[in-house]
């Protein structure tokens, strides 16, 4: 399973823990929206993933 995390701000500890857990058995992609404004890439990543979580 491919899980995309869209981070709107620096991730809190809880978000980092969830990402670490998901990395154990899934492919995790992280899009740092607070740094990166490449919306075309973001749209493609959303299209390609199975789950998306915007924190």
């Amino acid at each position: 399973m491919k899980i995309l995390y869209i981070l709107k701000a620096e991730p809190e500890d809880i978000v980092n823990r969830l990402i670490a857990e998901h990395k154990k058995d899934s492919e995790v992609l992280v899009f740092e929206l607070y740094k990166d404004k490449d919306y075309d890439l973001m749209a493609k990543m959303i299209e390609d993933c199975d789950r998306v979580i915007a924190w």
Partner: peptide, 16 residues
């Protein structure tokens, strides 16, 4: 605001 506009336009461009 800007992220919503940017993402919406990018998603539409991809035919969604």
């Amino acid at each position: 605001r800007d992220d919503i506009i940017g993402l919406t336009e990018a998603v539409l461009k991809r035919g969604h």
